[in-house]
Design a binder for these strands. Structure first.
Lengths: 215, 215
DNA sequence: CGGTCTATTGAACGACCGTTGAAGTCTAAG
DNA sequence: CTTAGACTTCAACGGTCGTTCAATAGACCG
């Protein structure tokens, strides 16, 4: 069988995804990207209209698919629990699992994409605008579900809890290798199964702890 | 009273700290830094020996003070609890509180420094080497204290828990403003008191949940 | 005063940056 | 074949980058 050959646009998106994830926006040049993609320098401007447009196109490409899968699973756990609200564990599972599944079973492109997403999410320069544009609608749905699952919690606690939740996820996706060093090899940043087993329980317990704060 | 005038080195460190925190390493030029500092371009190479050396000098400057304060508080809570191990809440408090105190009561330089630290910690390019060089020794002490406070937890759970903990802290320090947008102004990224009230409870409960995972 | 060391200045270097436009190639329709 | 349109190539543009170096200024000491 012959795999359908990648178009120039796809080659550029793949190369840009990989390099932006490693070195960030300003740390990556269009010449590096086009060399990695094996296409001419000028094609970036022809197909995307500039470096910044290419950057946003990289973020957009997989964002829609991630949103769809997350919302699909959220509806699933909400429907399964109805008429009661879904459990906190189930909601955070619907938030994390699509990422972990893509990491484990989809190609290396998703790996770079999530690493890049972690980079953007932590960037004071890009985080607010770009994360919001792609993910705000979906995230609001999840925050509502979290509020329903913890009716005694104040809305402020849920918002801050979501902030902590996404921070824990973000650092894990960045895969800086620091965990490997600190644990002297006992834990590996890239071990998705180990992450899956622990991120959900940690976050669900944390949210519950926040909800019962001082009570 | 006349404040002791800043040396050229300090002017450069202050300006670099501020700009690196906002735009990252590659997003900041030496000309921007020297303009902000009000000194000549060539003085960066004279005093620091290059851009990368300046970057590391910025990280080193406040790192030692943070380590000292963290270890001082860790010993304090361990001594207060002896001969029993310190509680998980107290250990994570000794880890977070120095940062929160510096943020609230020290100058704006600390603010930029922590934002930069968040940026570095999430960077696949810098995180491993630079964070390790400055913080590994201190962090290992805290991880031991966490293990003592949760004797039933597996070491792997503590390492992963520390990863989540520092991720939650990191995203909060980055102050991307995303929390403000999502909550429609109800929460503010820069509200240190609100962060202080919630980060400790969230993380302590999360670690406890990890320790009891499946049990 | 002259001499020495440190700090600062201003100009310049070569390298790389993102972007552009004209010319060339390829494909499909008339 | 001719033509139109999409795609690709190549060379070059003006700018900015980090770094270097000789010249200058200032402080301290004899």
């Amino acid at each position: 069988m012959a795999r359908a050959k990648r178009t120039t646009k796809e080659k550029l998106l793949d190369a840009a995804e990989k390099l932006f994830a490693r070195k960030g926006y300003h740390g990556t040049s269009l010449r590096q990207i086009t060399r990695e993609a094996g296409v001419d320098l000028a094609l970036v401007n022809y197909h995307f209209g500039g470096k910044e447009k290419l950057f946003e196109a990289v973020l957009d490409r997989r964002g829609a698919m991630l949103n769809e899968e997350r919302l699909r699973r959220l509806e699933e756990v909400c429907r399964a629990a109805a008429p009661r609200p879904a459990a906190t564990e189930a909601v955070v599972g619907a938030f994390f699992d699509p990422i972990l599944d893509f990491l484990e079973h989809a190609g290396p492109g998703w790996h770079s994409y999530f690493s890049l997403l972690a980079w953007v999410n932590n960037s004071p320069q890009w985080g607010k605008r770009l994360m919001g544009k792609t993910f705000n609608a979906t995230v609001k749905r999840f925050i509502e579900a979290l509020m329903d699952s913890l009716p005694k919690a104040a809305p402020e606690d849920i918002y801050w809890g979501y902030n902590f939740l996404t921070g824990a996820l973000t650092l894990s996706l960045a895969e800086t290798g620091r965990l490997d060093v600190l644990s002297a090899g006992l834990c590996r940043s890239a071990d998705v199964a180990a992450l899956r087993a622990r991120l959900g329980p940690f976050v669900a317990a944390g949210l519950r702890g926040l909800a019962q704060r001082g009570g």
